Simulated scan of single mutants.
Amino acid sequence: MKLSSLFKRVAYCGAVATWIFAILCVIERPAYAYVDPGSGLFFLQVIGSTFVGFGYLARKRIAQLFGVFGKGKNATQSDVDAG
């Protein structure tokens, strides 16, 4: 896939998400419920853990792509066998 087509897809998805968000804001109904400050902190925790998890998975995939984990395991195994 070409990089320009990827940017076009991301831009298109962003535009669609913006329109959906705008429509949902226009048709919102009043919520007769109580939301305490802890709910906002919980939302921030979910967002933060999502970013950390994505970073971990991305790092793991990049390391697998370049074979970093494979070299480390072989060196460790040879040290154990020699000792």
Rank of each mutant, 00 (worst) to 15 (best):
D36I: 03
A63W: 00
C25A: 14
I20P: 01
F66R: 06
D36Y: 01
V16M: 02
Q64H: 13
S39L: 14
R29H: 08
F43N: 09
A22C: 11
L44A: 14
G40C: 00
K60P: 03
A82T: 13
Y32V: 14
A11I: 06
L44W: 04
Y32H: 15
G38Q: 03
I47K: 01
L65F: 12
Y12V: 04
C25M: 15
F54K: 14
A15Q: 01
G40T: 00
Y56I: 15
A82P: 05
V80P: 00
G83M: 12
L24T: 13
A82M: 09
F69N: 12
L41G: 08
R61V: 11
L44Q: 05
Y56M: 09
P37W: 02
L41K: 06
G70C: 11
S4D: 08
C13L: 07
Y56S: 08
V52F: 13
V35C: 02
V68Y: 04
F21C: 06
L3S: 08
S5G: 02
V46L: 07
F21N: 02
K60C: 03
A22I: 09
V68I: 07
V26F: 14
I62G: 02
F69D: 11
A31G: 08
S4G: 05
K71N: 06
L3R: 05
G48F: 04
T18R: 05
S78Y: 10
S49E: 03
I27R: 07
Q77P: 02
K71Q: 09
S4I: 10
R29E: 08
A17K: 01
S78P: 06
R9Q: 11
R29A: 13
A33F: 11
L44R: 08
W19H: 12
G53L: 03
C25S: 14
W19T: 14
I62E: 00
P30D: 10
F42D: 09
F69C: 07
F21D: 07
Y32L: 15
S4H: 08
R9K: 11
L65R: 15
N74C: 12
P30L: 12
L24F: 15
Q77I: 10
N74P: 07
K71I: 04
D81E: 13
V46I: 11
L24D: 14
V10F: 05
G83Q: 10
C13K: 06
E28V: 14
K2C: 01
Y12S: 04
I47N: 02
V80Q: 02
V52G: 05
I23D: 09
R59H: 13
G38R: 06
A75W: 10
G83N: 08
G40F: 05
A17G: 01
N74G: 12
K8G: 02
I27M: 08
K60R: 14
V26E: 15
V10G: 02
Q77M: 08
N74E: 13
T18E: 06
V68H: 00
F66W: 04
F42M: 11
L6S: 04
V35F: 09
T18A: 12
K73N: 07
L65D: 10
A33K: 12
A15E: 01
G72N: 09
K8Y: 05
N74A: 13
L6K: 02
G55L: 10
F66G: 06
F66A: 06
F51E: 00
G40Y: 03
L44I: 08
K8S: 07
V46S: 05
V35I: 08
Y56Q: 11
D36T: 05
V35T: 07
S49R: 02
R29Y: 10
